[in-house]
Design a protein around this nucleic acid. Structure first.
Lengths: 221, 221
DNA sequence: GATACCAAACTGGTATCCCAAATTGGTATC
DNA sequence: GATACCAATTTGGGATACCAGTTTGGTATC
């Protein structure tokens, strides 16, 4: 793999894994020495990550994108639109057996699964479900939205009950898709996303002091 | 304005204006000499334009993205989802007076207006309408989709009647938005986009021989 | 004339300079 | 002690040199 893709991938994982905090300043020279690459691939990586919303320009200079509650709400609305549309396409397919693969993914998590894995599978469920639609642009939109929500979802404080409820909702959505009941599936997914959004924003809003104490920029607007 | 943004803007206009044809090979050195910039800003521009779908990698090397009929259909489906969602938000606003600005834009076109201007206004109508939603991500999604559709729409053969019909549909949509009848507005917009998509694909499909004769890569899949 | 082959040219990827502008840190002044 | 000011450093933006892999054009061979 080329250096360029390497830097991009590693830096993305550092950002998503909160190894560099939201709002933190980035210099091209630091990244360069951190990953042992020269500035050319570093700048290519930064340009890519900028379009993904993970880094942003701060005047002259780069910053790990802060977590913006107002934007999170907007992203969730966007996500609902594209994810519901994708689900509609999937329900209209003759062969919907691929949902089994997605369901197996869900079932791969149990009580012994580490939280990090639950987080990843929780995102991939939505991404892979969107992929089934066969529409590349809806799929990419969902993946992009989930990426932008990823750090916030990781910081969200979720109790065991909320986690179980989310998993039950995932299964209910799959059941409706498998049965081909498009409007029910859409309604379930829509409610799932809306509820998820409200809980996410409320959780971060309540915790914003603690998050800022950890050095994370969490802004309201 | 920096060289980087300059190269990006000029190259984008060349591609959208079909001064370089779909499917045409691009070399960084050619762009470099063409715009009098060095490879650094050229590469930045190419990376940006790649995320916009205007150029793509062709193994080793760059190519002006071919016009792909299957992808156009997918983009139109994606566009419908985000544009309808944005319109729903706009209809829910208390103050919808901003539609007047969009309507004025439409009315700025008359029989003496050059075709190029009709084309631009026809896209900006949808983009500015989406902006009114206040959701930055839905707006950017619509703008991105329209950009990807732009070259194809420019190549579409449209008779006077079809053009007038589209304009009438635009006005009807605005009227429904102004009245706040969300479901009617959504239905009109949905039909407008679907019809537009079908005519676009059919037109390009019928003309694909002529388009290829002009050196434009128009592929079915 | 067709073909195998090789050298020259060209490609994008990378590393490294240079530059102007902005930041920073310390110092002189009041 | 506060502040104005200046020099040194650091920043991202740009230009260029170099590289390995590929393409290309021509030539020698059959």
């Amino acid at each position: 793999m080329s250096q360029m893709q390497n830097v991009e991938k590693q830096l993305r994982e550092m950002i998503l894994g909160l190894e560099v905090g939201p709002g933190e300043r980035l210099t091209e020279r630091w990244i360069e020495s951190r990953f042992g690459a020269s500035r050319t691939p570093v700048r290519a990586a930064l340009l890519r990550l900028e379009t993904e919303g993970l880094v942003c320009r701060d005047g002259r200079g780069w910053t790990v994108s802060p977590i913006n509650l107002a934007k999170l709400e907007q992203i969730a609305v966007y996500r609902e639109a594209v994810e519901v549309a994708a689900l509609g396409l999937t329900c209209a397919l003759e062969d919907r057996s691929a949902v089994d693969v997605v369901e197996a993914m869900l079932d791969s998590c149990d009580a012994s699964t580490p939280r990090e894995e639950w987080h990843r599978v929780g995102m991939d469920f939505h991404i892979e479900l969107a992929r089934l639609s066969g529409n590349e642009f809806l799929f990419r939109a969902v993946r992009d939205a989930m990426t932008r929500l990823s750090r916030a979802r990781w910081l969200e404080v979720r109790d065991e009950a909320a986690l179980g409820r989310a998993w039950a909702e995932h299964h209910a959505i799959l059941a409706a898709v498998r049965a081909g009941v498009a409007d029910k599936a859409a309604r379930l997914l829509s409610a799932h996303i809306t509820g998820s959004r409200d809980r996410l924003v409320m959780s971060l809003h309540n915790d914003r002091r603690g998050l800022r104490a950890r050095g994370f920029a969490v802004v309201a607007a």
